[in-house]
Simulated scan of single mutants.
Amino acid sequence: MEITAKFYSPDDIMEFVRYFGGNNPQPVKDSVKTPTFKKQTVEESAPAPVTTESHEAPAANPAPAEPAAEGPGYTLEEVRKKLATLSKEGKKDQVQQLLASFGVSKLTELNAGDYPAVMEKAGKL
């Protein structure tokens, strides 16, 4: 069950507490204020202008969104898995030193550009 109560003044809150708090079995006074709402008008605006699409052929060789990275690219999950494996093998201190050599104390603080170097060094541990 969900009950939602809206109060519009401190007096409304106190009246609610007195009535439903169990201390006063008297009915709620007729002085409870009913909220009034202002009527909002919707302004009609002019329709947006119609744009025409160009029917030109796309470029034959569009430029790639990102330049190709040198070497293998690693994701955070791959690096995390490798470091977790090393930690489980008893190399937790070496993993911490590895991260510290990149100026971070947690893997999530590591720059994604450093993932290949971390994986290379982790492979040598």
Rank of each mutant, 00 (worst) to 15 (best):
Q40Y: 09
V118I: 03
V17R: 10
P25N: 13
V79R: 03
T52D: 10
T85K: 10
A59I: 11
G21L: 00
T41S: 12
V79K: 02
P25Q: 10
P35T: 07
L83F: 04
S54I: 04
T108V: 08
M1W: 03
S31M: 03
K29C: 05
P58D: 05
S45H: 11
E2S: 09
G73V: 12
L86V: 00
A57C: 00
M119S: 04
P49M: 09
S9C: 11
P47C: 05
E109I: 03
P49Q: 10
F20P: 03
D11L: 11
K81L: 07
N24F: 11
S101D: 12
E66F: 13
H55K: 02
F7M: 15
G113D: 15
D12E: 11
R80V: 01
V118S: 03
K81R: 13
A122P: 05
Y115P: 01
P62Y: 11
T85M: 09
G90F: 02
K29P: 00
Q97D: 14
L125S: 06
F16M: 07
Q94C: 01
Y74G: 02
D30F: 03
E89S: 09
V50H: 09
Q97V: 05
A5K: 07
G90L: 07
A59H: 08
R18D: 12
G103L: 04
K91W: 06
P116G: 01
A65Q: 13
G103R: 01
V118D: 00
A84Q: 13
P49K: 14
R18S: 13
P35E: 09
A48F: 10
N61K: 14
E109A: 11
D114A: 15
E15M: 15
T41C: 02
F7I: 05
V79Y: 06
V42A: 11
R18C: 04
A122G: 04
G123T: 02
N61Y: 15
K29E: 08
L99K: 00
E44W: 11
T85C: 00
V32H: 08
A117H: 07
S45I: 15
E53I: 02
R18A: 13
A122R: 05
P10W: 08
R18Q: 14
G113V: 07
P25I: 03
V28W: 03
K88Q: 10
E43V: 14
E15Q: 15
R80I: 02
E43T: 15
Q40R: 13
G103H: 01
H55G: 02
K121I: 00
Y74R: 04
L107I: 05
Q96V: 04
A112R: 10
E53L: 08
P62C: 08
I3F: 04
E44L: 13
A100F: 03
A57S: 09
T108P: 06
A57I: 06
K82R: 15
N61V: 13
K82D: 02
V32Q: 11
K88E: 13
